[in-house]
Simulated assay, not measured.
Amino acid sequence: MKYPAQHPAPDDADDRRAIPPTVCYPIDSLPRPDMALYTAAREGMEKVDELLVPARDARCWSLPASHFCRIVSVEGPQVGDLNLWHRDDLSERFYSGKTRALHGTHVSTGDRLWSTIPTVRPLATVTDDTLDWYGWDEYGGSVHDVIGTRCDPYTNHILNGVDYHYCCHSNLSRALADFTALPVQEAELLVHDVCNVFMATGFMPDTKQYFMKASPVRPGDYFEFFAETDLIGGLSACPGGDCSAQHSSDTAACYPLKVQVFRPAEGTLEGWKPAPRNGYSRTHGR
């Protein structure tokens, strides 16, 4: 709900609104991923790991550099909240805000998932997406968003006045603690804003509030990305199921998600190197 305007529009209000926008981060100079290289590496790739993320729960896994990862719908329409951390430095993690600024509100094949300051480098490149046909719907929505945060028990408590322990934030906190042997209170501080895999979202045309709608995902659909460095992945099967009506819920129909890790075909990544750390000197002009 927006507070109503308290001041009259000036005489030139229409002229001010009519000023054309400028893209904040033009990406013409951004290094482009070599999609042909990834395509060649995908042909003949070998599955080397697989795990099932139970409904209303989360799991973490190791994802070596130069490997592919697929998040797969297996039983029914289900949204997944994805976190990524550098395997050897958990302070370097997925930066949804910078990814959004560079690639837009939703990501698909050819887009990259960037890391936090000071490294600011691609952690992963999206290499295949069976929902790329969806595009933009009549409500301005699309899939795989980097807009939302993740459902969390703190906001849920403010809005609903109850303690709910299976929000994606809670699930990811426990999963990272289990995977790293960190206390859950420390792991929680490393959980971060997500890539909402399979989630259909946008902004309401009047209030510009973040909306969700039934995900178009069906069993067999997948979202695939390539690890540009050594990673730990974390995925929560959202307690909102397909997020058609609610999240942080024990009543929504929820399903597991499958995670698969693939080793590229031998000899197909000649010349590829892990993404280097950002080249900024960090002198801050001093």
Rank of each mutant, 00 (worst) to 15 (best):
Y3W: 04
A5K: 12
P8G: 01
D15V: 10
V23G: 01
P33G: 10
R42G: 11
V53N: 05
R56N: 15
S62F: 09
L63F: 01
V74E: 02
V74N: 06
E75Q: 12
D81K: 02
L84Q: 03
R93M: 03
A101N: 15
A101Y: 00
H106P: 06
L113H: 12
L113D: 13
S115D: 02
P122T: 13
W136C: 05
E138V: 02
S142G: 11
S142K: 03
D152Y: 06
P153W: 13
H157N: 13
D163P: 07
Y166A: 07
L172R: 09
T180Q: 04
V184C: 06
H192P: 01
N196G: 10
N196W: 03
M199G: 01
M199W: 02
K208Q: 09
Y210R: 10
P216A: 15
V217D: 00
R218E: 13
G220F: 09
E224K: 05
G234S: 08
L235G: 02
S236T: 10
C238A: 04
C238T: 10
D242F: 01
A253L: 08
A253R: 07
Y255P: 08
P256D: 10
V259C: 08
A265R: 14
G267S: 09
E270W: 04
G271D: 05
P276V: 12
Y280S: 08
Y280V: 11
